[in-house]
């Protein structure tokens, strides 16, 4: 299992990554996640409900995020459910950022070579 986890090139789905990132600075509900992602990407990534909640479900099933239980609700909006990152989720996000960073570094290096 561990071996397969280390497979090169395996990465988080785009929607997953953005959702995890949106939850990195605190719990949010679905619509807030969408707004945050939209803002962060300047409107390039728009999560429509089916994708948003489909991903939320996949992420919860994999234990990367979890819904806040009743009392933790920071808001009174009963309809909205809030989600936060789990430890596993935070790790996965960090790993993905690392991976992206590595790619970025490589790209920079290449450009530096080309420019020199």
């Amino acid at each position: 299992m561990a071996g397969s986890g280390k497979r090169a090139g395996s990465r988080l789905k785009t929607a997953w990554f953005h959702i995890l990132l949106a939850l990195a600075d605190g719990a949010r509900h679905g619509y807030a996640i969408r707004s945050s992602v939209k803002e962060r990407t300047d409107g390039a990534v728009k999560l429509y409900p089916a994708t948003l909640y489909g991903s939320i479900r996949e992420l919860s099933e994999r234990g990367l995020i979890e819904p806040l239980e009743g009392d933790d609700d920071p808001d009174d909006d009963q309809r909205r459910r809030y989600y936060r990152l789990t430890k596993a989720g935070r790790d996965a996000l960090a790993k993905e950022v690392e991976r992206l960073q590595a790619i970025l570094d490589e790209a920079r290096a290449t450009r530096a070579l080309g420019g020199a």
């Binding site: 299992m1 397969s4 997953w16 994999r62 234990g63 990367l64 596993a88 996965a92």
Partner: peptide, 14 residues
């Protein structure tokens, strides 16, 4: 053991 395999954040696609 579904929680297991996915804990590292890799989707169980394969």
């Amino acid at each position: 053991g579904s929680g297991h395999g996915a804990r590292d954040g890799r989707p169980g696609m394969g």
